[in-house]
Computed example of a mutant assay.
Amino acid sequence: MLRRTLVGLCALLFCVPATGAQARSPGWAVVVVDQASRRVLVLQSAEELMAYQGPGRLPVVWGWSADRAADLADLAPARSWTNPDEAKSRVRQGRRYLLATASGGLAAVVETATGVTRWAADVGEGANPHSIELLPDGNVAVTASGGGWVRVYAASQGPRATAHAAYRLPGAHGVHWEGRTGLLWALGDDVLIALRVGGTPAAPTLTVVRTTPLPDHGGHDLAPVLAAPGRFWVSTLTHLWRYDPADDRFTAVRLGDPAAVRDVKSIGDEPGTGRLLTVAPDHTGPCDWCTSVIILHRPDGTRTLRGTHLYKARWWGAW
């Protein structure tokens, strides 16, 4: 019980617990989006997940759901929180935030220590928001595949602020703020774009700085390569890519199983170790886009989380 408590605290406070005579860290916790329970779940580290054999209970150290958030009742989470599809960790001014979206229309930024919603909006059921990012000024970027746009909401102006700047991006799926260059990157069906956020926090603007065609169709996930700051992981329908903006070049990512690079919903490297974490649909469950398996690479490993319908999994890091 004490160990689980320590792991839970570390998951929230972005530390890594030490165990054993050599105080060896078990690594970073993992956050998953589970559409079966309509929850975001922070799990134990990858090493602990690989050793986990308990069929009766998931190794959960923290969880959140819009269904249980009283301060979101005005946004009709029974509808807007349908099929949650994104969960990210961001730390700003010493506070950790969960960033989450759902296909039903909800986008939210939640302070993990208190569970209080810092900002949230229902962007529309048909918009199908797929990713979200927290900007340094407190504003929030959201991409929506159904709506075909990337928006920057003036979230710094209040917890229900809806004023926004928008840019048309067909199939918009991924979004990431790159602090080194001060650019907002967004991924669509066929292009990766870099946007300059201008204006004021109350009235932001978006200007395209770069548009780069993808090597193949179906852009889905966009994530930073933590071992090489400034570079990105990009997933498409049939491949995984590593993109270097300095060279404007995509390099194919090879994994032990050639099939493991197809239809990847999320990818990321673990801070410090470089171990890759991916999720891809296994086409065996009730939904064609989900799975109950998280996959690790370099070294390889899989863990089935029984009863879940996972859409994405990410390292619960501090970047």
Rank of each mutant, 00 (worst) to 15 (best):
M1S: 11
L2Y: 13
R4M: 07
L6S: 09
L6C: 12
C10F: 07
A18G: 14
P26C: 09
V30Q: 10
V33G: 05
V33N: 01
R38S: 13
V40C: 08
L41V: 00
A46M: 00
E47K: 04
M50Q: 06
G54A: 10
L58F: 05
V60P: 00
W62D: 03
G63Q: 15
S65I: 09
A66Q: 03
A69S: 14
A70I: 11
L72V: 00
L72P: 11
A76P: 02
A78Y: 05
S80K: 06
W81R: 08
T82V: 06
G94F: 06
G94W: 03
G94T: 07
G94A: 05
R95P: 08
R95Q: 15
Y97P: 14
L99W: 02
L99K: 10
L99P: 06
A100M: 04
A102V: 11
L106S: 02
A108M: 13
A108K: 07
E111R: 15
T112H: 02
T112R: 05
V116N: 08
V116P: 00
T117Y: 02
R118A: 14
W119N: 01
A120F: 09
V123S: 08
G124P: 12
A127E: 12
N128K: 13
H130R: 15
L134I: 10
D137G: 14
G138K: 08
N139Q: 12
T143P: 04
A144E: 02
S145L: 12
R151H: 14
R151W: 10
V152F: 08
Q157K: 02
P159E: 09
R160F: 07
A161F: 01
T162G: 00
P170E: 06
G171K: 04
V175K: 04
G182Y: 13
L183N: 04
L183H: 05
W185F: 14
A186L: 08
D190M: 02
A194V: 07
L195V: 11
A202M: 09
A203T: 05
T205Q: 12
R210C: 04
R210Y: 11
T211R: 13
T211Q: 15
D216W: 00
H220C: 04
H220V: 04
H220G: 09
L222T: 05
L222F: 11
L222C: 11
A223P: 02
P229R: 15
W233V: 07
W233C: 13
S235D: 02
T236G: 06
P245M: 13
P245W: 15
A246F: 10
A246I: 05
D247H: 08
V253M: 03
L255D: 11
A259P: 14
A260S: 15
A260H: 14
V261H: 04
D263F: 10
G268Q: 14
G268Y: 11
D269L: 14
D269Q: 09
R275G: 06
A280K: 13
A280L: 11
P281G: 03
P281K: 01
D282W: 05
H283L: 14
T284H: 10
P286T: 13
W289E: 05
W289R: 06
C290K: 02
L296R: 10
H297P: 07
D300R: 12
G301Q: 10
G301V: 03
T302K: 05
T302M: 03
T308S: 07
L310K: 03
L310C: 02
R314D: 08
W319R: 15
